[in-house]
Design a protein around this nucleic acid. Structure first.
Lengths: 220, 220
DNA sequence: ATTTAATTCGGTCGATCGACCGATATTTTG
DNA sequence: CAAAATATCGGTCGATCGACCGAATTAAAT
């Protein structure tokens, strides 16, 4: 057998299946951390299982044992990263801060994620997903998660202070998701090119939300 | 000599430098077209000079002769594509159509570019540019071109019907550029996932612009 | 026409990659 | 303590890649 998490089919034979041991889990995490480091350094196209194994100080065969293949490793890494980010963002939006404050916090997170390299990894995997069916499915699932989160936020905002003209909550969510995604790409592509003031524009848009929000509060 | 476009240094020796011949130019275009086709099929990470040469029905050595290296080929391809798109968009915005019509046309172009595969290629090269200095520089230069175009449009709009609150033209350009860039990524990542209505949202935002624009016209 | 540059061509080289195997060691279960 | 499942290890294999070379061919300029 090559990997621990293969066929979970109906066990007609009462074999004594056993889960991964503590050491196994630890090694798995070690490899994921190493892969993340390599992905930051070399990008999705440049990453190699040899480099990952080198950084993790383990033989290459560990990767194939724990993840089945190079792609399995990258897929596991992506799902790990995305669930972390989505969870954090969900917590933030669940707070009862005013909307403009939540927008500001989202801007803070954007800076954080850019500095840590997360955004770049997510974008690179998205690009890879256009050529690779399995990665593409994973990315689509992730995007869907973000979309649901933002749609809920937009729905709550609509209840609190009326609609957005011709835009319904799904539209607002799509636009907001797009503007942040695009902002991240803009910043990443031109990080030494200060004449595309994306951050400033996002912050000022937050100020716009604040005006609108506080006027609506007075109106009640 | 390996390539025709190397040292253009001061020719102290009156050597009879000669430009590329007609056949040379034709071969160059042939290779670029083949590279574009391969990039669509295999993505930036999966492309190989062998495949490109195969599609162009030419030996690999042609690529290195005309472009110096694989990277040289991809760089030339990127600049070719980008200049085509930027030129088209510049012409469109130079028309004296009302702003909301120009926005609608931009939406049409977006659909066009997505269908033709252009957007995907540009995004993949942007991702590659994060790991590769030279490609990164090319992408930055391209982004800068788009930014100038959009800033000019925003400036004209500001003159026509007042400012955008706390947002100055640079901010508007940054936001618009971001929202289209992000929309393209959203659509590409989830083209079989119809529950992220990016296109509809962009069109409806165009309707919003129209309301604003026509109200401003009445006010004068 | 002759000379010189530009171009085409087939073939090869070293490097790197992901996958895989068999043997061994470790842990967990009965 | 066994016996079974899980985990680790070093090493090798075939495939593919980009780059490069020298010789032959074609086109352009004098």
């Amino acid at each position: 057998m090559t990997s621990a998490d293969y066929a979970e089919g109906i066990s007609s034979t009462p074999r004594a299946k056993r889960g991964p041991s503590k050491k196994g889990e630890a090694a798995r995490r070690e490899l994921l951390a190493a892969a993340e480091k390599c992905l930051r350094k070399y990008g999705y196209g440049g990453i190699s299982t040899r480099q990952v194994a080198m950084v993790a100080d383990a033989p290459m065969s560990q990767i194939h044992y724990h993840f089945g293949s190079k792609q399995g490793l990258l897929l596991a890494l992506f799902e790990d990263l995305n669930s972390r980010l989505l969870h954090r963002q969900t917590l933030m939006f669940a707070s009862d801060l005013p909307l403009w404050r939540q927008w500001e916090l989202a801007c803070d997170y954007l800076d954080e994620d850019l500095a840590s390299g997360y955004v770049r990894i997510l974008n690179e995997l998205a690009a890879a997903g256009w050529s690779d069916r399995e990665i593409g499915d994973a990315v689509r699932k992730a995007v869907s998660g973000w979309k649901h989160l933002l749609t809920n936020v937009a729905r709550r905002a609509e209840e609190r202070f009326g609609g957005f003209g011709p835009l319904d909550p799904e539209d607002v969510a799509a636009l907001v998701s797009s503007v942040f995604l695009g902002a991240e790409m803009n910043i990443l592509s031109g990080h030494e090119n200060p004449d595309v003031p994306v951050r400033r524009a996002l912050r000022r848009f937050g100020a716009l939300i604040r005006q609108f929000e506080e006027n609506a509060a007075k109106g009640e």
